[in-house]
Design a protein around this nucleic acid. Structure first.
Ligand SMILES: [Mn+2]
Ligand SMILES: [Mn+2]
Length: 270
DNA sequence: GCTCTTA
DNA sequence: TAAGAGCAACGCCGC
DNA sequence: GCGGCG
């Protein structure tokens, strides 16, 4: 098996046991989704979530390039607390298929692009419901946050994460650093928590969240990542992070409404 | 998935 | 020859 | 400075 010039190893290996979904099928998924996904990946440093032995085995995160990565993988030097690291991004079908063949199930991207690492072009509010949380409350929270952001003149967008939560994000001009945006973003999150105290919490410590939805505004910082649109997720249903129109939200009953199995039906009809 | 270390 | 380890640590928060 | 968190 060969896709985009990449020789696919062990195409019959099972990656998602509950669905019987194989590595070959996963790679084909990323080939088919590439026209939708690549624009979101382009120029954004990445964290790969790799499960070479399937999602029920131990996986690992990867953010630094391995020596054996081929030359066509685009590199970017990233300053960190512990020194400069050579990281990478995905800007072609070839690299997307290469990463998938490496056992990558999920792609998590920066909110800033490779050429200006400290100036985000997106602001994200990540809604993380508690274990056994009610998805209807996540939907309600998303609508309330949408209304709040619109009142502030923003253009909030919606995405299912493919697991249990939703993302609400809006585009930003690359004129401020993460640090320069932090105070405003944090005060919006705190105000939302104050407006809807039954629904939302910004408590970092789980034991203080009282089973409310964690309004995770902390993604909006240097070096942090969140799941990329159209990435598969490492859950049994092979959920897909799916951008939605706001009008579609009422008809959705879970964050993994769209999956490997039905995402192309949706994209076909759009 | 792949490499490197150690046995 | 094979088994086992490593592969993210970073940035933030609140204490 | 440290543990917790994603
Ligand atoms: Mn989340
Ligand atoms: Mn989160």
């Amino acid at each position: 098996m060969e896709i985009a010039g990449i020789k696919i190893s062990h195409p019959d290996k099972i990656i998602f046991p509950d669905l019987g979904l194989t590595k070959g099928e996963m790679v084909e998924y990323y080939e088919k989704i590439s026209e939708y996904m690549l624009p979101h990946l382009k120029n954004r440093p990445l964290t790969l979530l790799r499960f070479p032995d399937g999602i029920e085995a131990e996986g690992f995160h990867q953010k630094n390039v391995f020596d054996y990565f081929p030359d066509f993988i685009s590199r970017v030097e990233v300053p960190t607390e512990s020194g400069n690291k050579m990281q990478f991004y995905c800007d072609s079908l070839e690299s997307l298929i290469y990463f998938a063949n490496q056992g990558t199930v999920s792609f998590h991207t920066w909110l800033a692009r490779q050429d200006r690492l400290n100036e985000p072009d997106k602001v994200v509010f990540d809604l993380d419901p508690p274990d056994n949380g009610d998805f209807e409350e996540v939907k309600e929270s998303a609508q309330l946050i949408k209304k709040y952001l619109r009142k502030k003149g923003k253009k909030p967008q919606l995405m299912t994460t493919g697991k249990t939560g939703l993302h609400i994000w809006y585009p930003a001009q690359r004129v401020k650093t993460f640090d320069e945006r932090r105070d405003v973003i944090k005060s919006m999150a705190l105000e939302l928590e104050e407006m809807y105290p039954e629904l939302l919490t910004t408590e970092v410590r789980i034991e203080n969240r009282e089973n409310k939805i964690f309004l995770d505004y902390l993604r909006n910082a240097y070096g942090q990542t969140s799941v990329c649109p159209y990435s598969l997720r490492s859950n049994a249903s092979a959920g897909v992070a799916t951008p939605l129109e706001w009008s579609e939200l009422s008809a959705i009953d879970s964050a993994d409404h769209y999956t490997y199995q039905n995402i192309f039906r949706r994209l076909g009809q759009k």
